[in-house]
Structure formats: structure tokens, C-alpha cells
Design a binder for these strands. Sequence first.
RNA 1: GGCCCCGUAGCUCAGCCGGAUAGAGCACCAGAUUCCUAAUCUGGGGGCCGCGUGUUCGAAUCACGCCGGGGUCACCA
Length: 583
Amino acid sequence: MSDTMTLYKNFEAKIAAVLAELEANGVLPEGTNLANVAVEPPRDASHGDLATNAAMVLAKPAKTNPRALAEAIAGKLIDDPTITSAEVAGPGFINLRLDAAVWLQELGVIADNADAYGRSRMGEGMRVNVEYVSANPTGPMHMGHCRGAVVGDALSSLLEFAGHDVTREYYINDAGGQVDVLARSAHLRYLEALGDDIGEIPEGLYPGDYLKPVGAYLASELGDRFKAAPEEEWLPIFRAEAVAKMMDLIKSDLAMLGIHHDEFASEAALQAAGKPEAAEAWLRDHGFVYDGVLEAPKGKAPPEDWEPVELPLFRSTQFGDDQDRPIKKSNGAWTYFGADLAYHMQKAESADALIDIWGADHAGTVKRIKAAVAALSEGQGKPVPFDVKLVQMVQLMRGGEPVKMSKRSGNFITIADMVEEVGKDVVRFTMLTRKPEAQMEFDFAKVVEASKDNPVFYVQYAHARICSNLRKALADEGITPSAANLAALGEEELALIKLAAQFPREVEAAAKAREPHRIAFYLYELASALHSFYTLGRTDTDKRFIVADNPELSAARLFLAAQLGQVIRNGLQILGVDAVEEM
RNA sequence: GGCCCCGUAGCUCAGCCGGAUAGAGCACCAGAUUCCUAAUCUGGGGGCCGCGUGUUCGAAUCACGCCGGGGUCACCA
């Protein structure tokens, strides 16, 4: 886009110009801080199209009262030919009404930009690494991973739409003890595939059936030569093979949700490259890591096997953590944290900002990793903004009753189950209709209801309705959307345009706050406005998109409808939800 | 006990980098469709924004302290 000046920004600039003029005239002191000046649509549409709090914010530095200053600002704004009224209201708000032509032009802007309408350059030149999902490669994706996956993916798309250069990254925890357990579990299934009777899966191994194909695959690839071999011979091979198979499984589960990562970073590879050692050396040199003994846990009875051991500790207490945190275990292996801080440094090498999406059950580890990243990145002269987004648990329900799951038996609800039952769009949209840090319920019975109770259908229906009308107009009347007679549109249509025109600022606000759910709520609002207008046509045929004997008005209304559909599509695209054309 | 998140209408939730009379859906009541998709729409009642103190022109929003709910407090991942 050559010109990214959106409608709202355009008027922000006009107000800023007036303020600069007042500053030149001495009404405002030189160098007045305009940071708190806001220009936004008023909450109550009857107040006008735009409102600014400039006079209230600036009255004090101007040594006058808000209403007097507001009058002065309003007096200058009204000179603008596109501003039809500038009224001072309440404690000193300035309410502006814009010429209808301004809004009608915005429809053309939507049409011209099409799929790019709402894109922003606010993130231009900024590389953001978003790490999400990062589920252990020990089994299929289950419900616990779902919300973070959707939120991380939608956030990535949102940031991209707002102009950031986004890397979607998945950290494969393929170096810890759990992948050894996976390898042993796979070996057992390998023996089973070779004809052994393995009986019950022993305690401590993964019981799920999803390892059976892995065992069969290993048996066919490797034959029986690891059947009686000692563990140290087969463990590394089985670990690598099983992890690879699990990652295939996870990728296909994610694909069902429409999620595709750009980078898969292996913890094992990170360790093999010596990254944790390098981080430790630097941290030691700068006094962030020392050898020490942790105190026994307070508050509760210490674990029975607790004993004091000297370990290399990171000084996270300097950053507000409860205690310093070990980066290595007593057996010399890296702790998760020890490897993770090196991993974050690796990500920071090719990013200007880092975002992690974690489950809320890891909230307790946020301080230490943020502290480590701060220490490392600032110490190395390149401070990297690092944000950890916590997503809360999802309680699965069915018709108001909690869904029971047993991890022991491997009987858990997988993402594949969910998507097969209710569909990708329902899963994604529902996960985005609540702010991530709030707990939510997901009721299988409710989310498939085809009603306004279900925002997915409500928004998709709005889009389908528009498409249906466009199809019908062409097929029955031969009318195509046209911007030739937009002046024929009335107040109701203008209200729709005004709402659609907010999309670019919604995108920027959501991107700035890193809250993709705002887009979902905005789309619901837009869909609601569309449905309302549509229903007017039921009793008043002059209010229809297709008006009999009035092809000019019909073409204009259809042009409006087409642009509303465009905005809905653009919003849904950010959320990763399909904009269906018929239902 | 420490730390993190949440507390807004009967229910599920928006709004929270301070702004005008606090919103939406569900549920409840009353209505709208011979005609563009009723999977929709219109109207109505319903609120100490958990409690208190502070900050200021102004607090659901910010700070502090309580209360209630959840999470978490391994050399796990």
C-alpha cells in the first residue's frame, strides 16, 4: 500500500494540526505533550462520528478550562470542509460529524485494498518470534494444548496483518526424561509388533494405542535386531525415531486446526550445539550464576527424598523470584530451565521481540525465564522485549456436565477428536471469544448449536447472507455492485460503513495489545449490525439490498454489502476461520 | 504461606495504557417473516462493576489493603 493513511488517522492528523496551530499562537505552551490526546468514535453514536478529549487533557497546561479550550479547537476544526459539525459536549469533549462523502469514500478504499484492507505498517521492520504449542513430542495433541495453539496462531496472524515479520516457532522438548520414556514405550510396542505378548503396559510408560503404529514401523524398518539388545544400544535410535513419528502426528493434528509453524527448534540440537554451556559461561562471568545449595521447600512438608545438593543456580531472586533456580541437575544434565534460557537467546538472535504462549500451569516459571532473558539480552547489549502470554485452562463440558478424562488409561480428548466432532472453525472461534487469561468452558453441545448463541455461526451467517444476495442479484436481476451511486445510500447504510471503517483501528489496537480475541468481538458486532439492517428489508422492501425497479440503489447497496463481506473475510482470515459463502 | 490469573445483569462474558447515561448473548416477557437465507430481527424488565482506602477535573479501568474462586510452588516439562 502506498498510502496507509486510514480514515481515523487522517482525522487524528487534522486535530494534531489544529493543536500545532494553537501552540504557534501561544494558546498552548510550546512542546505540549500530546501523548494523551485521543481521537476515537464516541461510545454513543448519537454524539457524532469522532470525539476527542484534547481540550480536557490540555486545559491544565494551557491554563484555561476545558470547555473554553474546546471551543477554540472546535472553532478551527469546523473550517475543514469534511467536518460538518464540531460541538463541545459534557466536560469538554469535542464531537465531530463528518461529511457523508468521507464515509462513502471509505467503501472505495475497502474495495481497492480488498484482502489487504485493514493491514497496517505499525510493525514494519519488526521481527517477532511467537513460540506456541511446544507440546512434548510424546503423543497426540490433546485438549490442554488447544487453546494456546489457537491463540498463538491467531496472534501470529494478527501481528502479521499489522505489518510485523512473524516467525511461528515450536520448541521440541526432545532432550528430557520424558522422551526416554517414549522410547521405552515405543520399544515395548516394537516387541509387540514382533509377536511378543507384552501384557499390560507397565506403570510409568505411555499406554496409548497411538504408539502401536510406531512399534510396527520400527519392527518393519529395523527387524528384530533390537529385540534382545541392551537398552543403551537401542534407546537413542528408538528415541529419535519415536520423536520424529510423534512430531508427524502433532503436525497433522495442528494442520487440522489450520496451524503451521515456520520453525521447529529441537532442544536436543540446541544442547548438541553447546548453547546452554555458552549461556552458563556468560551468566557466570557476570555474576548471574553461582554454585549453591537450595533451601528446603517452605510452607509445606519437604519431599521425603529431599536433600541438600550443590547446583549451579541462576540468581532469579534478583528479579523477584522466590528462590534461585538450578540450571543443571545433580546428574549433570541441563534442567528444562537451563536449556530454555539458552533457547530464548537463540531465538533472540533473529528476532526483535519474543512472545511465548504458555499454559497457566507454568505461570510459576515466568519470572525466572523473563529474568534470564533480561540478563542475557541486556548484558549482551541487545535488550529484547519478551512477553509471556498465559492461557488459562479449558473445562470441557457436554450438555452442562464435565467431560471425564483419564490420563492414566490414555483416554483423553484429543484435538483430532474435537475437530472431527465440531469442526475447525468452531474450535478456533470459540477459543477466541474469551480473553485468554480468563478460564473458559467449552461445551460440545453448545458450540455446535446453529444459533446466535453461537458466535461462529452468527458471523459466518452474516458473510453467507451477503454472498447469497450478491449471487441472487446477479442471477435474477443481472445487477452487479457499483460505486457509481453511493450517494443514494442513507443513514442506516452510513452507520454500517462507520462500523466497517473501524476495522483498521481495531486491528492496530488488537495488535498493540496482542489480543486477537478483540477481532472476534468486533466481527460479532459487525455481523450484528448487518443482520439488523438486513431484517429491515423484511417489512420495508425499500430497505433491501435488491430494490425492485431501482437498479442504481440496488447496485450501491450491493457495493456496500460486498465491502462489509470483505471486512468480515479479512477479520476471519486473521482468526483462521473460513468465511463460508453459503450455509 | 509466596507468586500468577479471575471477580461486571439470574447465567456466560465484553469493556480495563482513566472519559460522557457501564454493554452483548442466554434466560424471561411482548412482538416482526405472502417477498433478498427466521441459523435473523425489534422492544421490555433486570446492576452497591466483590469490599474499602487512595491518586484527580473524572475510576469498572490506576495504586495499596482485604474478601471470594482457580492455578502453581521438583534437580518435572
